[in-house]
Simulated scan of single mutants.
Amino acid sequence: MKNRIWLMEGLSSQRDIILGIKSFATKMQTDLTVYASHRNERNEILSVADFSLTEPNDAEQRLPFILSTIAQYGINALHAGRHGQWFENHRVGIEASGTSLTTGASGPEWLEMADDKVTFAGVMEENGLPVVPSLRINSIEELQHHLSHSPFEGQQLCVKPVTGIYGMGFWRFDDTASSMDIFNHPANRVVHPRQYLSALSGTETFTPLVLMPYLPGPEYSVDILADKGEVLAAVARRKEGPLQYLENSGEAFELACACASAMKADGLVNVQTRNNVTGNPVLLETNMRPSGGIGYTQHSGVNLPGMFAFHKLGLMPKSDVIEMAKRDFAPATVRSVTDVIAYPTHLTNRLN
């Protein structure tokens, strides 16, 4: 049977994952076919796959589309990308087709837990893992009270939505911040508490928030390949200013791997930590999906997307993945730069 893997619409790194898989197959001198799909016209992503498809926008059409595609093209492994909860709810039907399904999790309950930052913090504490203290805020009045009577005495406070991605809604409170700072320097994510409360008072509905102490850092983003809670390979990115340092050891690295194990992670996932005031790493959150920066990790010599594909297709046993990740790793420093590619206006490998 041919090696065919299908990567459905992802959040931000679908192109890098496809390129990683194809370069790994070339290195291993193995025939492997990559199918990719997206709801939108994203030719810069789809053009790097061997074959591409357009996904339906209607969720009711998703399962028939998936099953017919698997049957027609003989897909062996399917990576969900977005809509992880939906895929978990339809896992039995999808895997009955003979393909393996990867959502990043071993069940829907793990996706729900990871999505709720306060619940996640509580579960990690129960597992004996250090985590940033997190307080759920359910009203403006609660937030106003805790800003006046901090539950984290002596530490600067920050806030973000209980659920969400990409750090959206994160703000750090500063009593000395100017009212114009959020307009002149929005990337700093610093706001005066009074201004934040005023903005909240103008909203019709209150979205639950998590209040936390702001940690000095540095921050680590650890990209991990796991198999039902067993960590097979991982690369940590220590973020300091514009530079990221690639590592495969240390307290933050070990903590992130322990978190992925506790969360029964399955596939390519990401765990974030940050050092507290005593210099020790604590867990911030876990994303049961590939990170936007997973492509950076290949500069360490460890190709996580490639090893993921080969493992899911049965081309590499766990022992080989673990050994290769250790053998091929080399420390590296990377920096994100602005880049541009020519946009492919036509796709010659479109299947529908």
Rank of each mutant, 00 (worst) to 15 (best):
S97Y: 04
R350C: 04
R15Y: 02
L19G: 08
P186R: 09
E95H: 05
H38L: 05
F329C: 11
T338K: 15
V123K: 02
L284H: 08
S221A: 12
T203Q: 08
L284S: 11
K264Y: 02
H299T: 03
K228Y: 11
S261V: 10
T333C: 15
A49M: 12
R15A: 05
C158A: 14
S134Y: 04
L53F: 15
L255W: 09
H299D: 01
L255F: 01
M124Q: 03
S68Q: 14
M180R: 08
Y296P: 01
V210D: 01
V48I: 10
E55Y: 08
A258C: 12
L225F: 13
G154C: 06
S300M: 13
L268S: 02
N287F: 14
A36I: 12
M288V: 05
E142S: 07
F329I: 11
D328P: 14
P290K: 00
L78I: 13
T176A: 06
T345C: 02
T99C: 15
G169P: 02
K326V: 09
L63F: 03
I165K: 14
E240K: 04
A77E: 09
N3V: 12
Q244P: 00
E254W: 06
S100W: 08
N127R: 02
L32Y: 06
P317A: 14
G128A: 07
V48L: 01
L347M: 15
D116S: 03
W6S: 00
E60T: 08
F173P: 04
L243W: 12
E88Y: 11
G301D: 07
E88I: 11
K22T: 13
V190D: 05
G202M: 05
D328K: 11
D175Y: 06
S201G: 13
P64K: 07
D50Y: 12
N89W: 05
K318C: 10
E88M: 13
G122H: 09
I66H: 09
F120C: 12
L200M: 01
S106K: 12
I224V: 02
A25L: 06
L209D: 03
K2E: 15
A234K: 07
V231E: 00
H38D: 14
G164V: 10
A187T: 09
R136G: 00
L147G: 07
R42F: 07
L347I: 01
V123P: 01
L129T: 11
Q72G: 04
A260K: 11
